[in-house]
């Protein structure tokens, strides 16, 4: 078994309105920053012991499918790296 960290990034699907990101964008503009757009995402860093990077990724994907992401509004991606 090897120690891995799986990083799951959950984003709203393209086209789904994100009022919090929009509010944040407007606040940055009030601070006189110049920007075209802003997207927010949730990042989960999951430490786990697994037989291989593939196994760690498979388990992280199952976590995303069953809880971390809502398939109606979210896409997600998973990156796995050895911890330490």
């Amino acid at each position: 078994m090897t120690a891995y960290t799986a990083t799951v990034t959950v984003r709203l699907k393209s086209g789904v309105l994100d009022p919090e990101a929009e509010t944040t964008r407007r606040a940055l503009e009030r601070l006189e920053f110049d920007l075209e757009d802003l997207r927010a995402a949730d990042v989960f860093e999951i430490d786990l012991e697994a037989d291989s990077a593939d196994d760690a990724e498979r388990r992280a994907r199952e976590m995303a499918d069953r809880l971390l992401a809502n398939p109606t509004i979210h896409d997600y991606d998973v990156e796995v790296a050895e911890s330490g």
Partner: peptide, 17 residues
């Protein structure tokens, strides 16, 4: 209900935030 899949769609952040 929607999060459990018993009903369709989902309810998320109000447009007004």
């Amino acid at each position: 209900g929607c999060e459990s899949g018993l009903t369709p769609g989902t309810f998320t952040v109000n447009e007004s935030a």
